[in-house]
Design a protein around this nucleic acid. Structure first.
Lengths: 203, 203, 203, 203
DNA sequence: CATGAATGAGAGTTCATTCAT
DNA sequence: GATGAATGAACTCTCATTCAT
């Protein structure tokens, strides 16, 4: 079994290499400017090799989506155990931004790029987009139950909160923070988020 | 001089035609799917003709940027006369979102697309990006002077506010609002923005 | 108007050049081995140029079909005026084989290759395939009326006749006549055809 | 020697498996659409394995030729014992068409495809093409001796006969019988052939 | 013996850009 | 000023073939 296992592992490693390289290029030059050839060049293989691991460009793309959402949920799930809903909301945002900073290419692909995931993923009841939406709305509902956001439509509040962190994330990733010194940008992200939470708490 | 003037006017009209058409196509099919040939076809001129008015694709792109910012400022400037700073801030956001809804292709290009403006524009002291930033920060400063945002770093507050409206705009434009019925989306944008302002006021 | 006309003529000449070259290559190396690039190389233009004259490979292919059938009917139509049906049938075969010898690539494409013409051509009531079939069956019907092919099903007779000439043509084009000296092959085609007619007449 | 023999037998079995599978695929999807990889997939071996049994694609192709002709002669040889030459000719045609219907992929490859057999086969005195040619010409010679085909060049008559059945076969295989209902086509093949024989007999 | 990862060459096609007219 | 023919480089993807294991 040793051989089969090694082969399996090598195959996975190659897929990971391709995925990671593609992700890196996506971040550096944008998705549209990243070609199968580019990726092949970057990993120093011939273009054809990529097709041994992914059927075509869109399958590679899908795999990146899936991977991205997996990682994304690892960040978010750390927070689910927190009892106090407002504290949970606070940490949710922190995890969200941490994911953005540590995996900008994935965030870009998942939440900024127009290209959607293939249909097959959309069918599933709890597809990743829905799932993150639910995590947020249920937390907001808990907050409301705990006495926050009085007289507010929870759906509107959820959307506002998401837009806030997404706005921070997008400006960071798509480089609209040039007014701030480069080494302060990450910090500023969290400060703005913290300020936002503070005003939310008074609500 | 009559002739020279007419020529100048004709040149500008042609540039405007190209710009407008490009903008329309950008909106319809996305930037990357819009080719020089597409634009030429749409205006019923030959591809070569575009190069008489714009050096290359990136210069056309830059011109669109400039045009986009001009229009953007027309929206924002409506608000500058308002005395009360908090009211001004409120209207600023409304104008911002109105611009987004009425000119999504420009907004996308100006604030979401990675492709930056060419260096030459960045040099100018009051380039458009800076200008909008200044409009916001000065309004926030006025708010602070009027007693709002106590104990808050105005720079952080400004950034947070911008991120909020930018987040709303981005989710709208890049189609991350599928949880909400299509005919309610614009409304929701303004509701979220309104809720945001409400909590800001209590600050 | 002179310029427009010249342009029009040049465009047609280029299309003809591409068509002729493609036809030549098809004959030399077979359809499947003939690529857009090959054609481009042969006419000493870049591959892209072909796409200025034909939307894609299948449109080029279609155009060749259309052209081929046009030429084909020019051969056949010479015969339609002949009163005597048996004489008409004789000359029909001669024209058929003459077309084959003078336009082997077209014949191959039209009657041997598996690739069919696009749907649009098939729709027409009198598409080329049907038309040639009708020319033959109506001539056979005339022969029957004139006393030939007694007690024979005319449909079977027509099919047999077509198969005979098609068989001669196919063996010639696809090089299954190596038992006969190269310079006698065309002659043999007509001799066999002549013998066939002779036995038909006695029928 | 037992071991060597078993090895030999296994080798032949594998070659047969590859050959049969290739033949099946050729029939299903056409020669040009059949790749080495396809064949490997179909036999559930890796592509490399095929190269252990056949030097390259063209050698595999040659082997199919050889195999095809073997089968072909099994059909034809059933007829050689018939004394009466005209009856033998009749049955020869029937066997020919039966082979076509039962082995269309082989027939296509052997008599329609342009790709020729490699030179080495052509050298041999009695290569398969020659052999079938001889079977036919000797039968025609016998017919002539028996009083048929008076005043006719036997070579021309042979060629005409072959072209007739080859024409029927080609139209059947390459789908040029769309004027006739699908379930009548095989029948029509034999009817046309029968009619042809009838007129030959009167000769 | 068999594998399967890898490749180089080539397929069809698109596009920004140039330039003679 | 405008054309439109032409290009070269790039794109995604396929395939016969090789070779270390």
């Amino acid at each position: 079994m040793g051989i089969a296992e090694r082969k399996e592992r090598e195959k996975e490693e190659m897929q990971k290499l391709i995925l990671d390289t593609a992700t890196k290029l996506f971040l550096e030059k944008g998705v549209e400017k990243t070609s199968m050839r580019n990726i092949a060049d970057a990993i120093e293989y011939s273009p054809g090799t990529i097709y041994l691991y992914f059927k075509d460009k869109s399958e590679l793309f899908d795999a990146m989506h899936v991977k991205g959402f997996e990682i994304f949920f690892q960040y978010l799930s750390k927070v689910m155990v927190i009892e106090d809903p407002m504290e949970r909301l606070e940490q949710l945002g922190i995890q969200y931004l941490t994911f953005v900073i540590e995996n900008p290419a994935y965030y870009d692909m998942m939440f900024i790029l127009r290209t959607p995931m293939q249909a097959k993923h959309n069918k599933e009841e709890w597809n990743p987009g829905d799932r993150s939406h639910q995590v947020l709305t249920s937390t907001v509902a808990d907050c409301k139950r705990a006495g926050y956001f009085k007289d507010q439509n929870p759906e509107v509040v959820s959307f506002m909160i998401w837009a806030q962190v997404h706005g921070l994330a997008s400006m960071f990733i798509r480089e609209r923070m040039k007014f701030y010194p480069e080494d302060k940008r990450e910090e500023l992200l969290f400060e703005a988020k913290h300020t936002f939470m503070e005003i939310l708490r008074r609500f």
